[in-house]
């Protein structure tokens, strides 16, 4: 009995110290310390952004990945209400053209300049947006034209460009795990990207950045340098493939596969 009492008293005396040890151990445990590590997605520095000089992102990606120059990524260029689309590539004469929606296949890692004219909704207006293609899709062989990257210009883009401002869009391929069920290609999705945020890094977090579209109101002149018209990638105009994804804006279709989203870098008032 004596020993049991001693043991009981020892237990009673040791309980507070044990609780204190557990509490301190819980506070200082390595798991808690490591739990304070920031998310890994933000643990690296992204030197590129939407504010980088046009062509820098494509040049870096080309240097890193050494893109195959024989591979041409189809782009589907759509203009609101239709219009003539001409493609420039490093020269002051267009290397191809067609009526919207136009399908054109180009090299990855280059910058191209478009001339959009003949728009029934904007008579007499010409805009010269640029496309910086930084990555490409991996469609099934022989069906590349069925999976183009959509380059969709909206009425708002044109209006903002004509008002002397610059619209920058980052087109990215959604991650399948977080892709939306609704087809976002046919509608405008407002994004919560602050002006000082890195839209390219945000697109990289949500998926795989594909292209950077810049729409402004500058027009070329007779003394515009060739670099104004792009970096000289190969361009090949192909017959457009009309499918169900080319419905007018607002016709949202259910989509099971991951699709390219034409979003990011929208107004935050």
């Amino acid at each position: 009995m004596t020993d049991q009492r001693i043991n009981c008293s020892e237990i009673c005396r040791s309980v507070p110290s044990l609780l204190a040890a557990l509490l301190i151990g819980g506070i200082l445990s390595p798991a808690t310390v490591f739990g304070q590590i920031q998310p890994r997605s933000d643990a690296y520095h992204q030197p590129l952004s939407q504010h980088s000089p046009p062509g820098q992102t494509a040049a870096w990606m080309n240097a890193i990945r050494n893109y195959d120059m024989t591979w041409l990524q189809p782009l589907q260029i759509e203009v609101p209400g239709g219009g003539q689309v001409d493609v420039y590539s490093g020269y002051n004469h267009p290397v191809g053209g067609g009526y919207s929606p136009m399908l054109v296949a180009v090299n990855v890692g280059h910058v191209y300049r478009l001339r959009v004219s003949g728009m029934p909704k904007y008579p007499g207006l010409e805009i010269y947006p640029s496309i910086e293609l930084i990555d490409h899709l991996h469609p099934p062989a022989g069906r590349e034209n069925e999976f183009p990257i959509p380059i969709i210009l909206t009425d708002r883009d044109i209006q903002i460009a004509e008002s002397g401002q610059l619209v920058t869009r980052v087109i990215y391929l959604e991650q399948p795990q977080i892709a939306q069920q609704l087809n976002p290609l046919r509608r405008e999705i407002p994004q919560a990207v602050e002006p000082k945020d890195n839209a390219l890094q945000e697109a990289d977090r949500l998926g795989r950045p594909m292209a950077i579209i810049r729409v402004g109101g500058r027009r070329p002149s007779t003394n515009s340098p060739p670099a104004f018209f792009g970096t000289g990638g190969h361009v090949e105009v192909r017959p457009a493939v009309i499918n169900e994804t080319m419905l007018p804006p607002g016709s949202v279709k259910m989509q099971k596969r991951a699709v390219v989203r034409n979003v990011s870098h929208e107004i935050r008032k």
């Binding site: 000089p53 046009p54 062509g55 820098q56 494509a58 040049a59 990606m61 080309n62 240097a63 050494n66 893109y67 120059m69 490093g90 890692g109 280059h110 910058v111 640029s130 500058r218 027009r219 002149s221 003394n223 515009s224 340098p225 060739p226 670099a227 104004f228 792009g230 970096t231 000289g232 990638g233 190969h234």
Partner: peptide
């Protein structure tokens, strides 16, 4: 330099806007 088919990666860089419109 357009760099097409020269064995190395193309610069992919647009020239600076030497003129301001």
């Amino acid at each position: 330099d357009m760099g097409m088919g020269m064995g190395g990666p193309p610069p992919g860089m647009m020239g600076p806007a030497m003129s301001t419109q």
